[in-house]
C-alpha cells in the first residue's frame, strides 16, 4: 500500500511538474487535490490498511497530500509569474506608433478670448451684460453723444436696415440699456459681444468682430481707477511685469478719451516689426464717460462719474497667435480652428 502511495506520489509530482500553464494546473488540482481528487481519495484507503500499519500509513498519506499541496502552490506561483510574463510580452508595443484617434470638441478662438478677457474683469467685479445686435440709431449713436451728421460717425461705417435701425457698430450701445435699467444705482459691468462695420472683407478688416467693453459708474469713480483697472487687466492677461501707457485720443462718448498701450508682447519693448519699432502695442480705447452720455443714461453727472473701456477681441487673437489675416476667424476652416485646442 505504502509502495503504491509512493508510486502515486512520484507520478503525481511528475504530472505537476509537467503542467505548462494555469489551465493545466487547474485540471491537475481537480484530478488530485480537490475534495474528490486522487490525493484526497488516499485518505479513504487509510481505514482499509491493517490497524498496526494504519498510523504510519495515515502519516504517509498526510505527508504526501501536504507535500503535493506545497508543490502545487510553488508550481502555481511559478506559472502565475510565467503567465504575467507572457501577457507582458504579448502586450509589448512600439510606443512611437500612432495612438487611437479620439473625438474631442473645441471652442472657437473668439469664444476663448472673450471668456478670458471678460473673465479678468468679472474677477474685478464687473458683471456681464448683453443687449441687442440690431439697434436703434439713437442707442448706437445719438445717446452716445453722436447726433446725426456728427463728424465722429465717419469713424464707424454702419450697416443700416432702415433709416433708424442698424447693426450696432460697438457694444457701447449696451451701455445705454444698462444705464437706463440700473440708474441711479452704481454700475460695474462688462459688455461682450459681436459688433458690425460696413467694410470690405480683407486680411485687415472684417464686417464683424467681438468687443469686450467695461463700464463703471459711481459717486467716487476717477480717471485713476481706469488706469488701475486696466493695469490690473494688462498684468493678468499679459504677465505680471506688464506696463501700460495712456495717451490722448478721441471718442465722442468719453471725455477725456485715451488709448491704452501695453509693452509689445513680442519684443518686450525693445522695438520690432509688430510694434512698428515703438515698443508699445495699442490695447484698447477708454475714457471717462461723457456727461452727456450719463444724462442720456438717466444719471446726474453732478452726482456720479463713469469710466469706460472697450477692446477688440479678434485683434487680440491675431496679436497673440501671430496670425496675419483676420479672415481666418470667421472662415471656420477646421484646420485653423483645431489649432486652438482648448
Amino acid at each position: 500500500m505504502l509502495e503504491k502511495l509512493q508510486q502515486y506520489y512520484s507520478t503525481a509530482k511528475t504530472l505537476l511538474q509537467n503542467t505548462a500553464n494555469l489551465a493545466d494546473l487547474e485540471s491537475f488540482y481537480r484530478e488530485h487535490l480537490a475534495p474528490s481528487g486522487k490525493a484526497t481519495n488516499w485518505k479513504r484507503e487509510i481505514g482499509k490498511v491493517p490497524v498496526e500499519e494504519r498510523r504510519a500509513f495515515g502519516q504517509a498519506v498526510n505527508e504526501v497530500t501536504s507535500e503535493l499541496l506545497a508543490a502545487f502552490e510553488t508550481r502555481r506561483d511559478l506559472l502565475k509569474l510565467k503567465d504575467i510574463a507572457e501577457t507582458i510580452a504579448a502586450q509589448a508595443t512600439d510606443v512611437t506608433l500612432p495612438g487611437r484617434p479620439l473625438r474631442v470638441g473645441g471652442f472657437h478662438p473668439s469664444t476663448l478670448a472673450v471668456r478670458e478677457v471678460s473673465g479678468v474683469f468679472q474677477r474685478m467685479g464687473f458683471m456681464p451684460f448683453e443687449s441687442a445686435h440690431v439697434e436703434l440709431d439713437r442707442n448706437n449713436f445719438e445717446y452716445l453723444n453722436m447726433p446725426p451728421d456728427h463728424p465722429a460717425r465717419d469713424m464707424q461705417d454702419t450697416f443700416y436696415f432702415s433709416e433708424d435701425i442698424l447693426l450696432r457698430t460697438h457694444t457701447s450701445s449696451g451701455q445705454i440699456h444698462a444705464m437706463r435699467r440700473f440708474a441711479p444705482e452704481p454700475l460695474r459691468i462688462v459688455l461682450p459681444g459681436l459688433c458690425y462695420r460696413h467694410e470690405n472683407i480683407t486680411p485687415r478688416s472684417e464686417i464683424q468682430f467681438h468687443q469686450v467693453e467695461g463700464l463703471l459708474i459711481g459717486p467716487n469713480v476717477r480717471m485713476s481707477d481706469l488706469k488701475g483697472v486696466l493695469l490690473q487687466f494688462a498684468r493678468q492677461m499679459f504677465g505680471p511685469n506688464q506696463q501700460i501707457r495712456v495717451r490722448g485720443s478721441y471718442f465722442p462718448f468719453t471725455e477725456p478719451s485715451v488709448e491704452v498701450d501695453i509693452r509689445c508682447t513680442l519684443c518686450s519693448g525693445e522695438g520690432c516689426r509688430v510694434c512698428k519699432h515703438t515698443g508699445w502695442l495699442e490695447l484698447l480705447g477708454a475714457g471717462m464717460v461723457h456727461p452727456a452720455v450719463l444724462r442720456f443714461g438717466g444719471y446726474d453727472p453732478e452726482k456720479v462719474r463713469g469710466i469706460a473701456f472697450g477692446l477688440g477681441i479678434e485683434r487680440l487673437i491675431l496679436l497673440r497667435h501671430g496670425i496675419d489675416d483676420i479672415r481666418y476667424i470667421f472662415q471656420n476652416d477646421l484646420r485653423f480652428l483645431r489649432q486652438f485646442g482648448e
Binding site: 460695474r188 459711481g218 459717486p219 467716487n220 476717477r222 481707477d225 488701475g228 493695469l231
Partner: peptide, 8 residues
C-alpha cells in the same frame, strides 16, 4: 495720473 482701484 496714478493707478488706483475703484473705491465704490
Amino acid at each position: 495720473i496714478p493707478e488706483t482701484m475703484p473705491t465704490d
